[in-house]
Design a protein around this nucleic acid. Sequence first.
DNA 1: GAAACTTTTGCACACGCTTGCAAAATGCGT
DNA 2: ACGCATTTTGCAAGCGTGTGCAAAAGTTTC
Lengths: 338, 338
Amino acid sequence: MSKSFVSANDVARHAGVSRSAVSRAFTPGASVSEDTRKRVMNSAQILGYHVNQLARGLMRSESGIVCLVVSEMDTPYRAQLVRAFSHELQKAGKISMLINTDRSDSGVDAALRQTLNYRADASILLSGLPDKAITKLCLDSGQRIVLINRDDNINGPFHINLNDHQAAKVAVNAFLRAGCRALAFVNSEVGTPSLMARENGFLAAAASFGLNVTVTRHGNTVYESGRHAAHSLLTSFDRPDAVFCVNDLMALGFIDSARQDFGVRIPEDLCVIGFDDIEQASWSSYELTTFAQPIDQIVQASLLWLSEAADTQNVKSQTFNAPLVWRKTVRGNHQQVS
Amino acid sequence: MSKSFVSANDVARHAGVSRSAVSRAFTPGASVSEDTRKRVMNSAQILGYHVNQLARGLMRSESGIVCLVVSEMDTPYRAQLVRAFSHELQKAGKISMLINTDRSDSGVDAALRQTLNYRADASILLSGLPDKAITKLCLDSGQRIVLINRDDNINGPFHINLNDHQAAKVAVNAFLRAGCRALAFVNSEVGTPSLMARENGFLAAAASFGLNVTVTRHGNTVYESGRHAAHSLLTSFDRPDAVFCVNDLMALGFIDSARQDFGVRIPEDLCVIGFDDIEQASWSSYELTTFAQPIDQIVQASLLWLSEAADTQNVKSQTFNAPLVWRKTVRGNHQQVS
DNA sequence: GAAACTTTTGCACACGCTTGCAAAATGCGT
DNA sequence: ACGCATTTTGCAAGCGTGTGCAAAAGTTTC
C-alpha cells in the first residue's frame, strides 16, 4: 500500500550491475553496452520500474513539465486550444500542468508561482490575466514562455499573434461585396488587445471606404452579451445591415436575438461575421460565416519554438492569419476574399 | 539565465539560521519559533525563494499533484468538468496534470504511466478510455483514484456515478404527462456504461407503462450524430412524438435536423429531452429541457474523498441525481417531476 | 605479447529538500 | 539559583536520480 515504488537500486541489484548503469540505460545517448542495457531493461520490465521524474528533474535542467495557463477553459475556443496543446505536448513527451486563472484574486499568482516550484520548463499563457510581474518572475527563473494573443511588450517570451487587422479588412470587404453599407461592430467590455485590434482594424478599413461604424460593447465575450448587443443595435432607428462580432459566441447570441426578438432575416436583412470558428458556428441553426483560429499553426509554432535550444531562438514572435470560412450569414458568392 | 534558483541554503545563510529551520518554516505545523519563522520568511521574500516541490515530493509521501485523465476535453460537458476540477484542486493547494486520452493508441498508457513517474497523489478519470490494467497499476503504486461514470468493478478507487435509471424514469414520466405515446431513444454507438444505463432505464420505465421505445444508435455522442438520428427516426412511417437523447449535443443536432429537414415543431409535434445541460442547451434557439450534470457535487465529493486519510476512506462510491431542468422542448406545466 | 587506445563501469558526490534525534535554549515552579 | 519540563535548533542521514572522473575491460596495432 505504501512506498511500493521500485527504485533504480532495486533494478541494479536484480540485474547485477551498478546503479549508474541503470541510470545510463534510461538516458538516451549515454555510454552503455548494448548487453547491459538489455539486461537492465529486462529487469526493469520485471520489477515494474519507472524512472522517478521528480528526482530526475532535480538533477537535470529540464523537468519535462509545461504549464498551460488559461481562464474560462470551458469556452469552446479555449477548450479546443487546450485540447490541442495537451495532445501535442504529450506526443512530444512533455507533461502538461493546468493553471486555472478564473479567479482574478491572488490565487492566480499563487498558482503561477506553483509552476516555478515544480520547475516547469515552460509556460504557455492562453489567458490575458496573469500579472506582467509574474510573467517576468517566471522568465527570470529560466522558464520559457509563450504568449498567445497578448501584447505585453516584454522581451524573452515567444509572442504569437493573430493578424486581426487583416481579418477586419477582409470582413469589411466581404460586407461591401454583399452590398452592405450600415456597418456595426459588436465588442465586449473586456478590452483584450486582440479584441481591440479587431475593432480598430474594422473601423480603419471601413473608414478607408468612407463608411461609419456603429460600435457597441457589452459584458464578456459570451452568448448573452451578443443578445444584449442585438437589443441595443436593433432597437435603434437605423439598423445596421452588417455586423462583425468580435467573437463567435457573441455572434451566435446576436443572431438568435436578431431572429427571434426582432424578426430579422439573416443574411437577407442583415449579414453577420464572427471570429473563432467554434464548433457551434457550423451548426445548421447558424451556419455562421467566421474567421477560423489557426489552432494547429499556433500549437505547432509554439512547440517548435519550445524545442529549439535556448540560444538558438532567433525568432521572437510570429503572426498568423485567420482565414475566413464562408457559410451562410453573409450574402454573395462564397469566394475567398484575399 | 541558467540555474538561477535560490535554494533553502541561501535563505538559511541570509537569515542566519540552519537549513532545517528554513524547511520547517515552510512546513505547516512544524516546530519553529515565531521569531525565526518570521525571519526566514523575510529572507525568503527578499531572495525570491520558493520551495522546490520536486525535491519536497521526493521526501514526502505526497507530491501535491493530481492527474486529470480526460478525452475529448473540448466537448462542452467535459470542458466544464475539467474547469471545475482544476479550479477546486488549485483552491485546495493541489496542482493538476492533464492527461489527454484522445488517441486510443499506446500513447495513452504511456501518458498515464507518466503520472506514476511524477508520483501523482491521485488520478481522476473522466474518460472511459484508459485500460483497466493501467488503472490497476496506478492503484498498486499507491495512487488514489476517482472514477467518474465508469463501472469498472475494481476495488480501491472511489466511484462516482449518476442515477441514470432514475433520470430515465423521470424522462418517461415527463413525456407521459405531455401526452406523448410514441417514445424514441437516441443513443450513440459508444456504449459507455452510463449511456447504456440511460437507455436501459428508459426502456424499463417505458415498459412499466406498456410502451414500446424505438431505439437508434449513431456514431459518437456529437451534434452530427443527432442529425443522423433525426433522419433515421423521422423518415419512418410512424414518427415518434417524444425523444430522449442520451446527450445534449445529440439532442441539439436532432432538434436542428427535425425542424429544418422535416418541418417538425418542437414541442408541439415532438418533445425532446437531453442530458448534461451544457451551456448551448439554454440558448434561445433550443431552450432544451434536459438533465443537469451535478458537476459541483461531483467535484466536491471527489475532493472530499481525496482529502480524507487513506485509512479513513469508509465510503467507496457515491451516486448523484441529475435534476431535470425544464425549458421548452417538452409540453406541459413546468413542474418538477419527482 | 605489450603498448596505445577506446569503450564500459563503478564510485562518489551533487541536487534541494524532509525529519529523527540529541543538544541547546527557554520557561516555570520552588 | 536550581532542577525539571518544554520548546527550538542543528546535525546528519536519507529520498532517487544524473554525471565527472578514474579504474577496469575490451580492442586494435605493431
